[in-house]
Amino acid sequence: MKKTWLIVIAVIAVLVVYGISTYNSLVSQEEKVGTAWSNVENQYQRRSDLIPNLVNTVKGYASHEKETFQAVVDARTKATQTTICIDDLTPEKLAEFQRAQGAVGSALSRLIAISENYPDLKASENFQTLQAQLEGTENRISVERRNFNEAARAYNTAIRRFPKNIFAGMFGFEKRPYFEAEEGAEKAPEVKF
């Protein structure tokens, strides 16, 4: 009788230790997803902070291109107003966030294209520096989005695998969405001079 109780207690202890370990590993992976999301937002904020400098630099050379400047400013405003808390990250909200950020990228492309019409602007050291900063920021955004997707994939895989899926369901760990390519991204952009 004593051996039976010892075996039962040992099995329960092993299950408790496994449960605690599983829960803690899921929490760690969920935090990695949150950290990766913060890094994505940080890079978008960096881009948003650079935009006023770029706009003002280009404005000095191309004062009659008001429409383009307004499009950049409006896109930036909308993008900075579209925020998502990591705890409320749904595929729909992520898609809305991506659309807002895509509008910023599109407006910036038009702004950069203006420089083709203004040789003095292209030669401006300020413009070249800001353009390089924006290019670097776009690369950083791409890297951080990839890192977020990798963290989300590892987390989503962990909460779906047996037996962790039991603990994930018990403690409310939910699947995280991924960044996806924007619609039409499979087509190469047309460049006209």
Rank of each mutant, 00 (worst) to 15 (best):
E96S: 05
K93H: 11
L108Y: 01
S115T: 00
K66M: 11
Q81I: 08
N56E: 09
P52C: 15
Q81A: 14
G60F: 04
V55W: 01
Q43Y: 06
E67L: 00
D49S: 12
A36W: 00
R47E: 14
F69C: 06
D87P: 10
D88Y: 12
V55P: 02
L89G: 03
T68I: 10
V72A: 08
E96V: 13
R46K: 06
A103P: 06
G34V: 05
L94H: 07
G34Y: 08
A95I: 07
A113I: 00
V40S: 02
S48F: 10
L89S: 01
S106L: 09
H64V: 07
E31T: 12
F97I: 04
I112D: 05
T82N: 13
T57W: 07
A103Y: 11
A71C: 01
I114V: 15
V104C: 09
A79C: 09
S38W: 03
K66P: 13
F97G: 00
D88R: 15
S106C: 00
R110V: 03
V58G: 08
Q98N: 14
Q101Y: 10
E67Y: 00
F97D: 07
A100C: 09
L89A: 06
I51F: 06
I112K: 03
R76V: 12
N53T: 05
Q45P: 02
A62R: 02
W37D: 03
L111H: 00
K93R: 15
K93Q: 12
Q70L: 05
L108F: 02
L54G: 01
I112V: 11
L26Y: 09
R46I: 09
V33D: 06
V33F: 06
T82S: 13
E65L: 01
P91I: 02
Y118E: 08
K78G: 01
E30R: 04
R46V: 13
D87Y: 09
Y44H: 14
Y23A: 06
V55A: 11
Q98H: 11
I84H: 12
A79T: 08
N39G: 01
E67I: 01
S109Q: 07
E92D: 13
N39R: 07
L94N: 05
N42P: 00
V104A: 05
G102C: 12
E31C: 03
V33A: 04
K78S: 08
R99E: 14
S28W: 02
A75F: 07
D87Q: 14
A79Y: 10
S25K: 04
W37L: 13
